[in-house]
Write a protein that binds this DNA or RNA. Structure first.
Lengths: 196, 196
DNA sequence: ACCCCATATGCACATTGACGCATATGCGTC
DNA sequence: GACGCATATGCGTCAATGTGCATATGGGGT
């Protein structure tokens, strides 16, 4: 139950509604973990059933009533126990890498445009991280433990995006150099072997 | 159907049995994409039903008969069409990052040991990539398009592991510096607020 | 008046993934 | 001879995830 723990982790900051959590998973923690509102509401129900969070209904007019969820002591304990277990290193699982693995059996042009799009995407994200870093940590140091975690997170994010962006650039360059030597395949559906 | 396409991509190299594919997903492409043999066999059935691959049974004695799967022209086309679609940038989704996000609500010691384990893990993987790179690409250049893809892949893997390893080191250092200032919480299940 | 957007929650279905178990047999080891 | 291991394929179940749809309403644009 990884998403559940991510939600518990978010609720340590402050009590939130499912809607607010969904927005959080679209910005701060969402840089590392994607989850849409459906997943979040479903997980919230489970966490409530287990007694890890408590919902307080707030009656509103003009809008549907909202449910503000707060961590219970049991929830805090559960989070601590989860956090005390070793983490599992994830795989990268990027389709782009699968495409590169079969580079000689696919069309190069779409890969080039894809790489260019990805380059832009990762550059944007990198700039975003750097902007937040400069704003939140102009000194580059954290004052307390909470800040330290977020500082480290932002730094990792920034470096990751930078690295992938660099990779895209390099891949594009390499493809340009290669395209002179390699046979550029015309787009046809019936493709025979002959690669020589 | 991402795993299916990863399997098709593997079969462009050479025809393989499910067993061989499972081994492949435990080494080369498996550095980026994890899949156990169950997933692979299930996906192979689907791909066969769709006519993307063809199974040829080879009778064996002493071992169960094996099914060697070959890409059909339809399969090649499907792979090319899939590869022509833009890729979707994945999220990092690492539990360690969730732990760091809630660093002030959890116990530091388990995180330290976790970070040390992860440091070792990522260093090992980094060395592994570097070793393969030196062996397969001593010149650092690729001769054809297939090699280029694999060279790029290995380079990305190496850099990624290096980056995460550096991150772990930095996080450990930061936690050491911080531990002087921060209150080290004793391990108790009933935890009150008071963080001052 | 109509439509889209933001707020706020949720169900249903399909796909994907993780984990255990089952089958069949030869080979080496304790 | 019992046990684990490598080879080789597959079923069943459950958790996690992804996608579409449903509900309810006030406010702003056209």
């Amino acid at each position: 139950m990884a998403l559940g723990d991510a939600i518990l982790a978010c609720l340590t900051e402050r009590p939130m509604t499912g809607y607010e959590l969904a927005k959080t998973f679209d910005s701060s923690i969402g840089f590392f973990w994607k989850a849409d509102h459906q997943q979040i509401y479903r997980e919230l129900s489970k966490l409530r059933d287990r007694g890890y969070i408590q919902g307080r209904e707030v009656v509103q007019s003009g809008k549907p009533n909202k449910l503000i969820y707060t961590l219970t002591p049991e929830g805090r304990t559960a989070l601590r126990h989860w956090a005390a277990r070793p983490s599992t290193p994830p795989s990268i699982k990027d389709d782009l890498l699968v495409r590169l693995h079969a580079l000689d059996s696919i069309d190069i042009e779409p890969i080039r445009t894809d790489l260019m799009d990805r380059l832009e995407h990762h550059r944007d994200r990198h700039e975003n991280y750097e902007r937040i870093l400069k704003k939140r940590f102009p000194e580059g140091t954290a004052s307390d433990v909470l800040d330290l975690g977020n500082l480290l997170l932002l730094r990792l994010g920034a470096r990751h995006e930078q690295m992938v962006a660099d990779f895209c650039e390099e891949a594009l360059e390499a493809l340009s150099t290669m395209s002179g030597k390699a046979i550029v395949l015309p787009i046809e559906d019936s493709k025979r072997e002959g690669k020589g």
